[in-house]
């Protein structure tokens, strides 16, 4: 039974990491109905930039390096909104979706030309010693990032619910035109959203980068977090968190307890299978806004 809980807890912690990536998707989708395929690339770029600021020539202290990374992601946010999205306002969502594909390729290309293609280690100085809580082994790493994720989510919820800017962003996500008509600057709102998504991507990039090393495969994490996204609902922040936990736990339990019977490696598609099952019962995810259409 302890083994079961150990697998469960490990899965839940991986799930939190998926939620971090999914959160970036949700933020941008909420504010601009753009399905941002560049989220994985943003995490990769943030990770690469952070490694660049920490190691190579600059050797900045950690807090400064993090600030610089966020600054870089802010520049990206401005570039994306004003160069790519501005000419595409009011185009069908599929076009914007495809444009973010282009952005993803651009980011990967630029990031890897600056920082090189080889995998880089990222060491934040967090001790990776397993600790025992209630008879279950846990990694301090995972605990740390679970904490970070929790703080991030609370911060985001506070930002969206309590601040003036957050209210404006919610208005924009509700209805672009109505928001414009009451005087909310659309492009400014979008830029802020992309900056926030950039910050979330940075956290995700750091979290995954410390685990796997900063390398190209970080972009595939985004693919793994897509089922998280649709299980939770495309526009729900709590949905992303809860779905992340479900997927992380489900994937890990499935791999350990079902995997051996079918030949292993079912982690690659298990989340998608889970998503299909959930969507069969709830077509807009667990917490997604149900879209009511009229002719």
């Amino acid at each position: 039974m302890t083994f079961f809980f150990e697998v469960l807890v490990t899965g839940l912690m991986v799930g939190i990491m998926y939620s971090l990536v999914a959160l970036g998707f949700v933020l941008i989708f909420k504010a601009s109905e753009v399905f941002n395929m560049a989220q994985g690339a943003m995490s990769l770029f943030a990770g690469l930039a952070l490694v660049g600021f920490l190691d190579q020539y600059l050797q900045l202290p950690l807090w400064l390096a993090l600030l610089c990374t966020v600054a870089v992601m802010t520049i990206w946010a401005y570039a994306i909104v004003f160069i790519v999205l501005k000419p595409l306002v009011a185009r069908p969502p599929l076009m914007l979706f495809m444009a973010t594909f282009g952005v993803a390729y651009l980011m990967e290309g630029i990031g890897q030309s600056i920082y090189g293609t080889q995998a880089k280690g990222l060491n934040l100085g967090i001790p990776d010693t397993p600790i025992v809580i209630g008879g279950i082994f846990m990694s301090t790493f995972d605990l740390f990032f679970t904490g970070v994720a929790a703080i991030l989510v609370i911060g985001l919820v506070w930002f969206f619910q309590k601040t003036r800017t957050g209210r404006a962003l919610r208005a924009v996500s509700d209805d672009h035109e109505a928001a414009l008509s009451v005087g909310i600057p659309l492009l400014k709102a979008w830029t802020i959203t992309w900056i926030v998504a950039g910050v979330v991507a940075t956290v995700a990039g750091v979290a995954w980068g410390t685990r796997l090393g900063v390398q190209f495969s970080l972009t595939y994490i985004a693919l793994k977090s897509l089922p998280v996204l649709i299980i939770g609902g495309l526009d729900s922040i709590p949905g992303a968190i809860i779905a992340g936990l479900i997927v992380g736990a489900g994937e890990n339990l499935g791999e350990v307890f079902i995997g051996p019977y079918v030949g292993g490696g079912i982690q690659t598609f298990f989340p998608y299978l889970l998503a299909l099952i959930v969507l069969y019962f709830r077509p807009y995810g667990l917490f997604g806004k149900e879209i009511i259409e009229r002719v």
């Binding site: 000419p87 185009r91 630029i110």
Partner: peptide
Amino acid sequence: ADILANIESILFGGLIVFFLIVEP
């Protein structure tokens, strides 16, 4: 090879974005 791959993906992304903006 790695420089080639990077330039390829930059141009690729750039052209996709360019085409979508100019001729959606």
